[in-house]
Amino acid sequence: MLRLEPFAFARPGSVDEAVALLAKHGRAARLIAGGTDVMPNLKHGLYEPEVVIGLSAVAELRGIALEGGGAAANGSDGELVIGAMTTLAEVESHPLVLARAPGLAQAARSVAGPTQRTMGTLGGNVCLDTRCVWINQSHFWRKSLGYCLKKDGTVCHVVQGGKSCVAAASNDTATLLCALGATLVIRSARGVRAVAIRDFYKPDGAMNQRLEPDELLTQIRVPAPRRSSGASWSGYAKLRARNSIDFPKLSIAVAWTTDRVGAIDDATLVVSAIAAVPRVIAGIADLARGGRADDPALIARLGEQARKVTIPLTNIDGDTGWRRAMVPVFVKRAFAAARMATTG
């Protein structure tokens, strides 16, 4: 059996305890939420923590609620707040998520397989490490290769002569949360901060998150749709080898709002599983404004806009030209998925 290297284990019962442990151990610590990403990476020697901090006993990090609304009976003007340790299985089927951000439910449901989603958490998925065909392998394998930029090495096997790691963000929910403009709440012994998820990721595959070693993601907050809107929509489409278990070969999320006559007044399109940062495609709102989400020509234009700026690399298994060609197809499917599960 592939065994883990020794480490100490701590299991805080509260956020305060957790951040105190982080403050104490800093870079020597590794947080573990559901474990579905961290544990395989530990087994592959990608991390060498002295202490693993398990968050499963921190009850205050679980749960889904609306905050700050209350005017509308259906809560449509509240902020959807999801505890970081809420499992993906809970997210995918929770009535509030289905009502307020159906695309998030779709994205959560497309993560891995059912058992991984029962274990895995939304916070864990947001903090998922980047992936690359040259990195997610055993220590023996990576050593035989001479290692790489992301861990222990100095070369990139994807980009000849590359100096910065291009391992890809592969978290399904992050793509959708970027489209929705979600905010992350981050705690440390030093205090609390909120950061827009679009600013959370940085273009470095070696570590693509702006998270200090003493910090803990506690909440994911999805903003209320703007009051002027007639309706808000979100949808997700994922390209993968199998219909279960697999990480995305292409991850596409859309979110838009319509005015009172059904015309698009704002739209966001995000493409991920390409590089270290989920990419918010520029110019989408301008292209879409005034159009209709069931207009194939418009959707095709949006898809083409995304395709133009999406350059897949060999960091992920699968023909790069084909993956690029699939961008408009999956943009279309994300729109279709959104329209299948409309909100009020």
């Binding site: 573990i32 474990g35 059912p114 058992t115 991984q116 029962t118 274990m119």
Partner: peptide, 16 residues
């Protein structure tokens, strides 16, 4: 009562 993968669950995390 819920399915879980024991090979990527730390034994210490099973307490409780």
């Amino acid at each position: 009562g819920k399915a879980r993968l024991a090979c990527i669950t730390l034994a210490a995390d099973a307490v409780g």
